[in-house]
Design a protein around this nucleic acid. Structure first.
Length: 480
RNA sequence: GCCCCCAUCGUCUAGUGGCCUAGGACACCACCCUUUCAAGGUGGCAGCACGGGUUCGAAUCCCGUUGGGGGUGCCA
């Protein structure tokens, strides 16, 4: 039987990094089978909380990650099937109407063992009305075994599972039912999702079987796989309120999707052989649900960032330059990180120049959003770091002298190349008994406004003699 | 409260009874390289929660304790 898996996110907020990992694992499973199918189904049965923009965010996130799928489908579009399922179950006696309000249910909850609903309306024979919801009649005793590829079999006592609601008083099917109906319709073979859904599994199995019986259509039950949760430093489930969980955020900061995917694959799983930088093909080849870890994993931004640096450095220089454009090119680009504000004018930006700069910064950044601050002095007059200026120029007697000497030597330097600049600056320093390390500092500061940046002599050559000399002169004037 | 899950360096993990003096990665520290910063190289710090079993032998199996987490919606 071919693998059929699905991602079933609800459009109630940002696309969560945890959802991204679930998507990845499902996608991998489908890719492992030549006939595998990975379905994207938007679970939009809660009109109160869904928003169309979040649906779009799901599509955008999947596209950015490069995870292809069958669909997308909207759960709401299958409402007729949900209604039919409800009717079939009701006719078979699997459901009953209940007019208890949540407050009443809560009030009756004793200190006793059985949690949740107490079965108050089970035998009342209520008819459908505007105040009745539909509940599923669950057995009172026995055990149900959930087959879980990650954890093995998980046993639930039926006595601990209450008669849960499957349709609102408005008549609409709830997640509990809609999800099962859709999974049956889609012939889902593996339900792979976060551990927070583990307690839903026995209920869904019972519903699935009841549906098989009530409709006469025997659809094989799926097997489950509940993935360990992603947690924050407090070891709590990643939360939209406290934690940076939105995938967009990572995209905006210049994380590469391939790095994110690689890192996500390592949360709960590890490749054979110890090498952690692995491409999707390797993961597809090696991944097994049975090998997934059981304990929650901390989402470590530092490690993700380190991985991102590895991926950035491995890019061909031209590709790196192209990927930087949304952050550095004020002109027309296909996509923009949110909150982008041009650091220099469109007329000042020079794509050809940036292409030559790119290799100098490529190995110095771990995120694409660090690039602008590293090349700004090429496209705009740099803002002087006053502390740096004081340290190596104003309060260093050698500083101004070096600047003055550089002004003269650079002015006559032929050719104005990195090699010549290197040699000239080295000589400048030696004449004063200074290491190149110290000799380059005031020059770097004068020209770039900072003490750190791309290699200086390459930068000066690319900047050109005129700008270099002008900035040296200006710094000299500032030093007074 | 009740149900369920989990427990190896700070973090992610390898480890399925002897190969473990517990391996790798990130982070951190030191040194090397070096025009700054990175990158790169070398080395280092650091862990089997606890208590009982089982066994010739336990990080690995069993029980308990403790500690974490998830669920307990007419949300998904």
């Amino acid at each position: 039987m071919p693998v059929r898996v699905r991602l079933a996110p609800s459009p109630t907020g940002y696309f969560h990094v945890g959802t991204a990992r679930t998507a990845l694992f499902n996608w991998i499973l489908a890719k492992q089978d030549p006939e595998g199918v990975f379905i994207l189904r938007i679970e939009d049965t809660d009109p109160e909380r869904n928003r169309e923009e979040w649906v779009e965010a799901i599509y955008a996130a999947m596209a950015w990650l490069g995870l292809d799928y069958t669909g997308p489908f909207r759960q709401s579009e299958n409402a007729p099937a949900h209604a039919a399922a409800l009717e079939a179950l009701r006719a078979a006696g699997a459901l009953y109407y209940c007019d208890c309000t949540p407050a009443e249910v809560e009030a009756r909850k004793g200190e006793g063992a059985t949690p949740g609903y107490d079965g108050f309306c089970r035998e009342r024979g209520l008819a459908r009305s505007a105040t009745t919801a539909l509940r599923f009649r669950t057995p009172d005793e026995g055990t149900i075994l959930v087959p879980d590829l990650v954890r093995g079999e998980v046993a639930f006592a039926l006595s601990a599972i209450d008669d849960f609601v499957v349709a609102r008083r408005s008549g609409e099917a709830l997640y509990a039912l809609a999800n099962v109906v859709d999974d049956r319709d889609d012939r889902i073979t593996h339900v792979v999702r976060g551990e927070e859904h583990l307690a839903n599994a026995p209920k869904q199995m019972m519903l699935w079987s009841a549906l098989n019986a009530a409709t006469g259509l025997e659809v094989p039950l799926p097997v489950f796989a509940h993935l360990p949760l992603l947690v924050n430093e407090q070891r709590k489930k990643l939360s939209k309120r406290r934690d940076p969980v939105a995938l967009e955020l990572y995209r905006d900061q210049g994380y590469l999707p391939e790095a994110v995917l690689n890192y996500l694959a390592l949360l709960g799983w590890s490749p054979r052989g110890g090498e952690e930088i692995v491409d999707p093909a390797t993961v597809i080849e090696q991944f097994r649900l049975e090998d997934v870890a059981h304990s929650p994993a901390f989402f470590d931004l530092k490690k993700l960032t380190a991985f991102n640096g590895v991926y950035i450095r491995s890019l061909p220089p031209e590709a790196f330059a192209a990927r930087c454009r949304p952050w550095v090119d004020p002109g027309a680009v296909p996509w923009r990180p949110s909150g982008y504000r041009p650091a220099w004018g469109e007329d000042r930006f020079d794509q050809a120049l940036f292409a030559r700069l790119a290799p100098l910064v490529q190995e110095r950044v771990a995120r694409l959003d660090e690039v602008p601050a590293m090349v700004d002095f090429f496209f705009t007059e740099p803002t002087m770091d006053e502390a740096a200026f004081d340290k190596v120029i104003r309060h260093d007697p050698e500083g101004a002298a070096l600047l003055d000497a550089a002004l003269h030597v650079y002015g006559a330097l032929e050719p104005f190349t990195p090699e010549a600049l290197h040699a000239a600056t080295l000589a400048l320093g030696e004449a004063r008994g200074l290491s190149l390390r110290r000799a380059q500092a005031p020059i770097r500061c004068a020209v770039t406004g900072r003490l750190v940046g791309p290699p200086l002599f390459e930068s000066l050559a690319l900047l050109g003699r005129a700008s270099t000399l002008a900035r040296l002169r200006r710094a000299l004037e500032r030093a007074g």
